[in-house]
Amino acid sequence: MGIEFRDVGKTYPDGTVAVTGFSCTVPSHRTLALVGTSGSGKTTLMRMVNRMVEPTTGSVLIDGRDVRELDKVALRRSIGYVPQAGGLLPHRRVVDNVATVPVLTGTPRRAARDAALALLERVGIDPALGRRYPAQLSGGQQQRVAVARALAAEPNILLMDEPFGAVDPIVRRGLQDQLLQLQAELGKTIVLVTHDIDEAFRLGDEVVILRTGGIVAQTGTPKEIVAAPADEFVRDFIGADRAERALRTVDVDGRSVVVDGDGRPVGVLE
């Protein structure tokens, strides 16, 4: 159950190979992080789940059903989608943005708006901001709204396309914490695309590191990848040799203090 990529490949008409022979299963209620540089096919893979991209070989299954058997529009409405920065509808008020999919699927506008206001509160947005237009919110607030919008139709699956890529590091950290907290409560099946390995490690239960052309460099839990990078590419990508990943302990007055590669203290070993 969950999402299964079964030997999928995508070659565009101009001959560009985005993905080749990719197989992976995302169990229900788990988060898969697809991480790689641009051109690694990570976004292409995610977009196959809601049929924004159709694979040229192989198939994508949701709970055992090939997505090609499902109606495109109905499929997309049943999957929450968090776009990159700038993906809110600029001409709709914040509350109406959140209510978009429920209204599309026939929920009365009034009820959809009430539910949207409650969702805004849940993602940490003052419901009073619901009357504003997206451009009147900060970048971080807009992405919180985008998360609320993706949750509005109570989907089982969330697709997240570099959702926090365009906000500054402190705000990004807050958004990630929020998502982790929501995920602990809601248990969605999430496919997250990011180019930020730290984000992938923080949010992903399982991480797939991709190289150019959609070739898998390594798949595993964050711990497994940090413990045993598969090759030089992965070592380099996760910054295994960076000071903040190469930790050791030093003894200070009988306590084990963890220091990074430059000898700067990170914390105390319990």
């Binding site: 529009v73 997309r76 776009p83 809110l88 599309l104």
Partner: peptide, 12 residues
């Protein structure tokens, strides 16, 4: 970006 996000949300 707006059009693409709208399509991905399930606009016909």
């Amino acid at each position: 970006r707006v059009r693409e996000a709208a399509e991905a949300m399930g606009y016909s």
